[in-house]
Write a protein that binds this DNA or RNA. Structure first.
Lengths: 221, 221
DNA sequence: CAAATAGTGTCTTTGAGACACTATCGT
DNA sequence: ACGATAGTGTCTCAAAGACACTATTTG
């Protein structure tokens, strides 16, 4: 094994695949694009960009998110690196996947300006249907979906799917969607109470009691 | 941003960095090597290998573990991918880190045959001391240490640090080391009882009551 | 039997879960 | 007043934590 052929250590292309999640109409959605180029032409795929030679992975992810959504400053984290991908039979590609979360209101504000073929796909529908996606992208989405469900229980990741000021009903809905099950209102409120602070704002105009708006508790740094 | 200079999308070298953890003398240890080549010559570093052009990332990790420890079939998982590493000023390297866990008994059995400069470093000591490591390896180790502490609480990852047959005292010690705090014996046993099965074996020869040996419960697949 | 570690019984405390109740808006 | 959603009080039950006790070996 020491005498491994050193000519095999060729350089490779490195790409970043983006999983931009949002919640629209009480459903978890993911941003997909319709490919125009040849490997998997006319097939849906995750948006992605190649990593520049002088660009960090995080910067490439940020650039990709900017190109696809027009947004900077949205939450994202590295997910996993897939190395057995044969995106193109002629060249080896390492694909570093990043997961981004954005409230639908921010996304709608800037949608359509960029990649015209981009659209939001219903995640549960996508994963249970037989619809084909390019490369191993369906498995990547399945993995991200699983991570999202886990992380919602022990992190504040759900907050990135609501706006800065939110009602507890909205936040609870996000938790319910990510966990895939209904929650008791009183218990939910008890549990997240240490993670939020009241604002002096409320909703109004609805034909029922107004809802107080909350914010995430300031970071303890 | 669309007109990004395409000549920047050069290919890069991809390497795998290995974090081989074990427990020796009731301390968490990690396998390090003393570098002989120039970037950071004579400085301790994580062992690593370049990824072959036709080799998956997992296979490269497996090969690296084999080269460093002589072991196949030990537990490992991908940790994180670091892309801002400037291992060598002349070339860009993407480093995919893998974490491996192995009981010390297996490691000792095959030690010394491979990389002569390899040694086991005390992890807590390393992280609190001012000792310099090559590249950003110290931060990688800190991240892995943190992940280990988290995962021990909701996975069966600790089992990979004991032999196939183990006493509950041994297993408890592993948990205590990874969590960094003592545990109550009775509570610990209640908690892991669903994850283990008795064997009909016991320790003997010690000047105290013998300890029953247990195994991990068979996978529910 | 003394020293040492293995192993168990049980009380207390904490938090998750379930459910019923009250509060406040618009129409 | 009614429909609708916001928000709270409290009982139950299961798990985590704390601690004291018994059990079995060697020397």
């Amino acid at each position: 094994m020491k005498g491994y052929d050193s000519s095999q250590y060729e350089k490779m292309s490195v790409a970043v695949d983006l999983l931009v999640f949002t919640i629209e109409n009480d459903r978890l959605k993911i941003l997909l694009i319709e490919r125009s180029e040849d490997p998997y032409a006319n097939v849906s795929a995750l948006p992605g960009v190649f990593v520049g030679i002088k660009e960090t992975l995080d910067d490439a992810a940020k650039r990709g998110i900017m190109e696809e959504t027009g947004l900077t400053d949205i939450y994202f984290e590295q997910l996993y690196t897939f190395g057995d991908v044969k995106r193109d039979p002629r060249m080896r590609i390492i694909s570093v996947s990043y997961m981004a979360l954005v409230p639908i209101e921010k996304l709608k504000f800037t949608a359509g300006e960029r990649t015209v073929s981009a659209y939001l796909a219903d995640v549960e529908e996508l994963l249970t249907s037989k619809k084909k996606l390019a490369f191993d992208h369906k498995e990547i989405i399945r993995y991200a979906r699983w991570r999202l469900e886990n992380k919602v229980e022990y992190t504040d990741i759900a907050f990135h799917l609501v706006e800065e000021n939110f009602t507890l009903s909205e936040l609870q809905k996000v938790y319910e969607i990510l966990l895939g099950k209904p929650l008791y209102k009183a218990n939910f409120r008890k549990k997240i109470s240490p993670m939020i602070v009241e604002t002096d704002l409320s909703t109004s105009g609805d034909a029922h009691r107004p809802s107080r708006l909350y914010r995430r508790v300031p970071e303890d740094v």
